[in-house]
């Protein structure tokens, strides 16, 4: 399968991250990707670039500085009022134009709704490979991007390559990669580029944006403490035990995918490959077996606690601490124990 790279692709060099702007601010997944991109660029001995597109020159300039401080050597910018709100068509044109002009060998995007919408269009326009929702990125011995993602069903991962096409594209979900250390004052080169489109050429118009009310929507990805339930809870009512523990700890609650399918929790509280990826300080999983799609969503947690009746459940392979036993009995006891511990510590401090 590995052929000599076609001649016209040999000029493709450098690692790019398409940065995501959300109401004037950079989405944190872009920094996480810069951190990972930095490692890939160093391994390849090439530059790391950020791509910032937007409607407001000041916002784009501020984002470029943040990109430098998170590891970029170069930032490609396109500023045009047409890019004020995300729309597929002009963003696809902008990014493919940049790729065709400056020829990166690797192009990374966040696997957000915006990133997935854009990546699919760009890859199809460029007729190149795109690996979705990667959990690990590396450079193999021959210098190719090795993109690893979970496979369906069981406890397996697969590594996917785009050997004979450029750029090699991949998306990564928020919180899968660690946030790199910021280096204040770090700077680089800015290359500004024109969009070269007129608003009249763009068919789709943004009429309005209805912001979500803050109440009720789970803020799982960036929570410090997360308590989650799985099918081992056996009933919707027992989800209360999970919520009570989360409340005492001041954390968020969530669950495995089957709980969403059963309607025990809402979809925004699903943890794992097709739900949220989390990196909390403490993660407590009650009655969750630890399938690969769940595992990849929680592996970044500092401390993982499993409560499971089965001492041989897969979660025991990646949890740090475990109680083997009935979650329905242990959860309330744990809520009491934490409440006591926290009130004693509060008195002491």
């Amino acid at each position: 399968t590995r052929k000599e790279l076609p001649e016209h692709f040999k000029a493709y060099r450098h690692v790019w991250v398409a940065m995501e702007m959300e109401h004037g601010k950079v989405h944190p997944v872009s920094f996480e990707l810069l951190g990972e991109g930095r490692k890939l660029a160093d391994k390849r001995g090439v530059e790391l670039a950020g791509v910032v597109m937007g409607g407001d020159g000041e916002e784009v300039a501020a984002a470029a500085i943040e990109a430098f401080e998170h590891g970029a050597d170069v930032v490609y910018t396109i500023v045009d009022p047409i890019l004020t709100h995300y729309r597929n068509d002009p963003y696809t044109r902008a990014l493919t134009d940049l790729v065709n002009t400056y020829k990166p060998e690797i192009l990374l995007l966040g696997a957000t709704n915006l990133g997935r919408d854009l990546a699919g269009s760009v890859a199809t326009t460029l007729l190149t490979g795109l690996t979705a929702d990667c959990t690990e990125l590396a450079i193999d011995d021959e210098g190719s991007l090795a993109a690893t993602r979970p496979t369906f069903g069981g406890s397996l991962l697969c590594t996917i390559f785009t050997l004979n096409y450029r750029p090699q594209m991949a998306t990564v979900r928020p919180r899968v990669m660690a946030m790199p250390e910021r280096e204040p004052g770090r700077r680089g080169r800015i290359v500004s580029h024109d969009l070269g489109l007129a608003e009249a050429e763009i068919v789709t118009k943004v009429l309005d944006f209805i912001a979500d009310g803050d109440s009720g929507r789970a803020a799982l990805p960036y929570a410090d403490i997360v308590v989650a339930g799985g099918l081992g809870l056996r009933s919707a009512e027992n989800m209360q035990l999970v919520k009570a523990l989360a409340a005492v700890l001041g954390g968020e609650y969530g669950g495995s995918r089957p709980l969403v399918q059963k309607g025990w929790i809402t979809a925004d509280r699903q943890i794992g490959q097709t739900g949220k990826t989390i990196r909390p300080r403490l993660y407590i999983a009650a009655g969750i077996s630890g399938a690969i799609q769940h595992r990849v969503g929680v592996e970044g947690a500092d401390t993982i606690v499993a409560i499971n009746t089965d001492p041989n459940a897969p979660i025991m392979e990646f949890a740090h601490l475990a109680i083997v036993g009935d979650a329905v009995k242990i959860l309330p006891a744990l809520t009491d124990a934490f409440a006591r511990h926290l009130s004693v510590n509060r008195l002491a401090s």
Partner: peptide
């Protein structure tokens, strides 16, 4: 017609030690 190539399918490596059992 597929630019992506699945080269390797593997099981995740288990950590050196399993979860520490509290009870």
């Amino acid at each position: 017609g597929s630019p992506t190539i699945v080269k390797k399918v593997f099981a995740p490596t288990a950590r050196a030690e399993k979860a520490k059992r509290v009870n």
